[in-house]
Nucleic acid binder design. Structure first.
Lengths: 193, 193
DNA sequence: GCCACTTTGGACCGCGTAGTCCAATCACGG
DNA sequence: CCGTGATTGGACTACGCGGTCCAAAGTGGC
């Protein structure tokens, strides 16, 4: 595992992406190692060669991969929330992204599957949210220097998480639209100290 | 199955509650039929006698049971949001409830396990949210007749769902506190049409 | 062209666990 | 007190699937 040749790295990558695709489509519980093997044209030994600790090890890599996607999909807007126009554009992007994936939230499904027991899972999720919230807080400071940026960012993250949860639960995107719109409007017209 | 004597009904109930308890503690994936059998002092045949379609059938009953609990735990406040004091009391109750359960959200775990494939699961969840949102909307109308009650209720539900999601993900209750407090404050000082 | 190491193939194993089955026992109406 | 149907016990089966293993094939340095 220490020395991975370019070829090996490519195989590993192929496994992660193939598994991510399958899992996004069918859910982690309904995807077995044999499915992944078939979909990535690999063999059982390869799976365990690149992920010595087995399936949980692999799902962890998939989770990290998916977490990265969540943030990447919001770029370049997320990193540049310096005007209300940018905020609107970002908002629309977020809503569009969730509207597209509808009920299939790969990250929540994965974490539910892996469970909170594994601290590595928590680190991935916590880290992602921390970066997300940090980027939003930076944007808040840019447009509203007088606001409590971290608090507002927490509120916005919460609104998105809630909207996503409700989308999965009820297949209705409006919770996300309403929550995110209200949160931003609230920020716009904020008279906070 | 149609004819269930009092004794049979009691057994069935005992199974559901025992299973719910176990699942709340260890998660649906880590609870097998044998665990449930042991915890409820029943036999395999009883499990399948009262839940002919097996485990999924049982988990469905458990999910319905848990959904009921979610709303019950908010009473009597949820049904009587007629003053700001009641709103505050309700808010505190909701936050306290989630603070107590921390990362263990039985309903989300169950739905993740059962999957959206089963329409019966969706019905349980959708129905619960509909009743929840309806109760909140009624409260909004009581204190702010001029507001768009359904929209505000959707926002509040979203804030709670988001807070709960973030609580599970990060073990931090503040998202719920902030989201719910802001949503209610926003309603209090609403100048909406 | 040899050697060490990585990569790959795929048969095989074993366990956990959902689900089956049949017989014993109980409950109650007539 | 008999009989029918509900209820209970628990051994047994089926099998999906994660994980192991060994040997073959590639790869690259010297």
């Amino acid at each position: 595992m220490r020395a991975l040749t370019p070829k090996g790295a490519a195989t590993r990558q192929r496994i992660v992406e193939g598994a991510a695709l399958l899992i996004r489509e069918h859910g982690p519980a309904n995807v077995g190692l044999d499915d992944i093997r078939a979909a990535t044209t690999t063999s059982k030994s390869q799976l365990f060669h690149y992920f010595p600790d087995g399936k949980s090890d692999m799902l962890l890599a998939v989770a990290a991969h998916e977490a990265e996607r969540v943030l990447d999909d919001q770029q370049p807007y997320l990193s540049d929330l310096t005007s209300w126009d940018q905020w609107e554009a970002w908002r629309d992007r977020v809503i569009a992204r969730y509207a597209a994936q509808r009920r299939k939230c790969p990250l929540s499904a994965l974490t539910a599957q892996l469970g909170l027991a594994n601290p590595a899972v928590g680190d991935i999720i916590t880290g992602m949210y921390a970066r997300w919230q940090g980027a939003i807080a930076a944007g808040v400071r840019a447009v509203r220097p007088d606001a409590d940026a971290e608090r507002v960012a927490a509120q916005i993250i919460g609104a998105i998480a809630g909207g996503a949860t409700m989308l999965v639960a009820t297949d209705d995107i409006r919770y996300l639209e309403i929550g995110l719109t209200e949160a931003i409007d609230n920020l716009k017209s904020s008279i906070r100290d």
